[in-house]
Amino acid sequence: MIEICNLFKAYGRQSLFRGLHLTIEKGSVTAMIGPSGSGKSTLLRCMNGLETFQGGCISVDGQKLYGINERAYHKKQKSLAVKNIRRKMGMVFQQFNLFPHMTVLHNITAAPVSVLGIDPSEAESDALSLLRKIHLGEKAQKYPGQLSGGEQQRVAIARALAMRPEAMLFDEPTSSLDPEMVEEVLLVVRGLVLEGMTTVIATHEMGFARDVSTQVVFLEKGEIVEQGSPKEIFFNPKNDRTKAFLSRFMK
């Protein structure tokens, strides 16, 4: 479903990706692991058009984003592709990024109503059933500031799901949560995976990555060092750098 070809990305003179390739199948669950600063967030943000890149191509169901240095780059075409790609993929951030001036319900309905043009009352009943699914039905009229971190992140997931995406990108969804709230969020993600949602998740939760993913990608310094099934990566890593990283983590 997602095809990344020969991706080049640099921040100023500091280059990060130097010809990265990655394929993500429909219905797969891809876990991205790697040390801090390895480029997990950047890769996810490139996929969603939140970040531009210098070279290569990212293709989502035939919608193509090109590097800004490519000849094929065309402003109008690009903004259309970005729009379509964002409709196909929802994104959940480490910092939740709920809109603090809107109620929980409004957070969820705002985009479906104004972007997709869904009837407000229909959007509201959709939102309420989403909220009930994540056991937050009674918080609909609360403001994000009145919710715990775990609750906020679950609302953020519901907000992305309300756009009825075909794939979900998670950027370390539990990294800024207190330990006791991590599980309630992972439970929601697990539920999505079981429903067959195409999922890409950058995470430091190795146990979770091992249990739910169909493919694990180990990134270091902007480079895919090793990739394969969770069994291969976690129980039989081939590369020394992967071994070193995992041994540090599995302690």
Partner: peptide, 18 residues
């Protein structure tokens, strides 16, 4: 206003103006 607010809105498909 934190940058994450813009990113969240854009990722939901909102236009720059919206």
């Amino acid at each position: 206003v934190p940058r994450g607010q813009t990113e969240a809105a854009l990722s939901l498909g909102m236009s720059g103006y919206m």
